[in-house]
């Protein structure tokens, strides 16, 4: 029952938050620039062209009417047209979304699959050489600039050793389009050559994205496990002669993972944001690459579209994290 209230409460806050996000992008695009129309029209537009565009876009209306129309437009998925591809921005964004999601899902998977066990081991063998090594490893992961790390990986693995492709998502045509996720599509069509290509193209971008994410997961899992190991129930279980393996991997981990799950949710949002630079370095045709192209073209409608979509993904992820908290931690819903 309490769980239901929690879920409903989170859903209730979803809509005001999204509207708030719209108000932020409206403020950035309509209020901060001295003259948004001149901004949109570009440097070479004449005064008549600017005035015509102003009327056409409805920017001669009072501010509250502009805001209202903006909200209606965004709700219907209308972000305007891109200066870079000349297509509707919503089409551009939705065709690029699978590439970014594929990259971020894979990075979350890799960082959690490596980070959680390493965090547990680091806690169990506290102050061992392995723990010290992992600490240096994780502290470095949080301090490294991902665009620089990406370039280093390219230099070493693609240019120098030639083990991985330098950039792009696939050197072939890509598998037949079903979901837009190359790995899933090539599995569905049983195209092993494409599967190999898309996985090998993913190695370096995923390494770049997963390293700082993994560092965070290791730190939080380690802290969570150390905390849980000090609980009375662990003392009790030890006294009852439970095998240490069972205590740690079954009972301690479940408690320790509560903090980690929150972090994985936050990490997912951060990965989508970091994808901007990583996609730019690896020419990965996703949302981030599109955002960087839009920056170069000063295409600010497209940038606002990207900001909005990235924000909505982040809000949805946090919603899922909050709700899954309720399921993992029964105390939350009591």
């Amino acid at each position: 029952m309490k769980l239901l209230v929690l879920v409903l409460n989170r859903f209730f806050w979803f809509f005001p938050t999204v509207v708030g996000l719209m108000v932020i992008t409206f403020t950035i695009s309509h209020i901060i620039p001295a003259d948004p129309v001149a901004f949109l029209a570009g440097d070479n537009a004449s005064n008549e062209q600017i005035e015509a565009l102003r009327r056409q876009l409805g920017l001669d209306q009072p501010m509250h009417i502009q805001l209202w129309r903006y909200l209606i437009d965004l709700t219907q998925g209308n972000f305007g047209n891109s200066l870079y591809t000349l297509r509707p921005i919503s089409d551009d964004l939705s065709s690029r979304l699978p590439a970014t999601l594929e990259l971020t899902f894979m990075s979350v998977l890799v960082s959690a699959a490596l980070g959680i066990p390493l965090g547990v081991i680091s806690a169990v063998r506290r102050n061992s050489p392995l723990d010290h090594f992992l600490r240096i490893f994780t502290v470095s992961g949080l301090a490294i600039a991902s665009f620089w790390f990406a370039i280093l990986l390219q230099l070493l693995f693609a240019m120098d050793l030639g083990w991985t492709p330098l950039q792009g998502r696939s050197s072939g045509w890509g598998p037949e389009h079903i979901t837009g996720f190359f790995v899933i599509d090539s599995l569905l069509t049983w195209n092993m050559e494409e599967l190999r290509l898309s996985l090998s193209h993913m190695i370096l971008p995923v390494m770049t994205l997963a390293y700082p994410a993994m560092a965070t997961i290791v730190r939080f899992t380690r802290a969570g496990v150390l905390n849980a190991m000090n609980s009375n129930y662990v003392l009790y279980e030890e006294a009852m002669g439970f095998p240490r393996r069972v205590i740690i991997w079954k009972y301690v981990l479940r408690n320790a993972l509560i903090g980690t799950v929150t972090q994985i949710g936050l990490i997912f949002g951060i990965l989508i944001a970091n994808a901007v630079v990583v996609e730019a370095v690896f020419d990965w045709p996703g949302l981030g690459y599109y955002a960087v192209q839009s920056i170069l073209m000063s295409d600010y409608n497209a940038i606002m579209g990207f900001t909005f979509v990235a924000g909505v993904i982040f809000i949805i992820v946090n919603l899922i994290v909050d709700i899954s908290h309720g399921f993992i931690d029964p105390r939350e819903s009591r």
Binding site: T17, G20, L21, I24, T25, I28, S29, I32, P33, F39, G269, I270, I272, A273, N274, V276, A291, I295, S298, Y300, I303, M304, F306, T307, A310, G311, F314, I315, N318
Partner: peptide
């Protein structure tokens, strides 16, 4: 609710 880098990009680009 918006990733910081994304919001910073949007503002810096506009300014």
């Amino acid at each position: 609710a918006v990733p910081q880098i994304v919001l910073a990009i949007a503002i810096a680009q506009t300014l």
